[in-house]
Amino acid sequence: MSVVSIGSKSPAGGSLDPSEPPGTRFAPPARERIEAPPGEPRRIGYLYILPAFAFFGVFVLFPMGHSLWLSFTNWDGLTPAKWIGLGNYRGLVSDPEVRAAFGHALVLVVFYSFIPVTIGLLLAASLSRMRVRGMTFFRTVLFLPQVIAMVVVGVIWRWMYTPLGSVNALLRAVGLGSLQKVWLGDFRWTLPALGLVGTWVAFGLTMVLFLAGVQKIPTSLYDAARVDGAGPVREFFAVTLPGLRNEVVVALTLTILAALRSFDLIWVTTKGGPGNSSSVPALILYERAFVTNQVGSAAAIGMSLTLVCFIVVFLVTRLGERRST
């Protein structure tokens, strides 16, 4: 294809110089064709990805490499950094507050990811068996939390969770007044209460993903399953779940990452309180980088969090691939 050979002497473009001998004009492209089979990428291809790669390098790879370097130093942000090797990482492992924060992030994974994915799947399964009037309306309403900025979500829920807020009012209204709590001021309930906000937000995403995925599954598969006498449960495991495999992988990846990186919701509502009962790694990272002048340690948290994210995404993707073979 002539498109690929821009920059080399193109047989299609040709040379307008009549003095040039015809034989030499065509020789180089001909040789290239022999070396590289059709469809194989050529070196010129790197030129095409250069702009994007340069951007990626400057704004992602370089800061990441720099962070990695910082994570091996003791740096206050102003005076010269001191190389301390793995000191920051050792500090993180031995710091009960940091360990607790990573533990809280894992709890949030359940609320941000596992619960919404489960609900989304159940909903998709039931909707695959029936038609609902006004589906577009419900879909829009349920997706709405995804559209709202997390900070706004945090402010809304912070007020709903206050002692005199609407959550307690609702409990009273339905006769469950004994369950009333200071939701964001309770050492046991704050983290689950914040997790529920995450569920509320993530649920819209998983639902839209799965509903779209279900529509893609050929109805003939459902017909076949029903002819074979499959009930709703059997149908779900035999048709719906395998058909939604890719959507599940995407939903798990997005929501788990959101859980691990969560910061804004916690920052707006509790600042990790009461005590440290809802602190998360990103919160400690922020505090160390911008409040307590421990930039090296903050970078180490960032790198650790990045590593955890990579591992999780890798595992989830592998899970999806294995099922597909």
Binding site: F62, P63, M64, H66, L70, G77, R261, Y286, V295, C309
Partner: peptide, 10 residues
Amino acid sequence: LAVGGIGSAS
């Protein structure tokens, strides 16, 4: 920053 790193700040 958590994922991209502190580097940008520095």
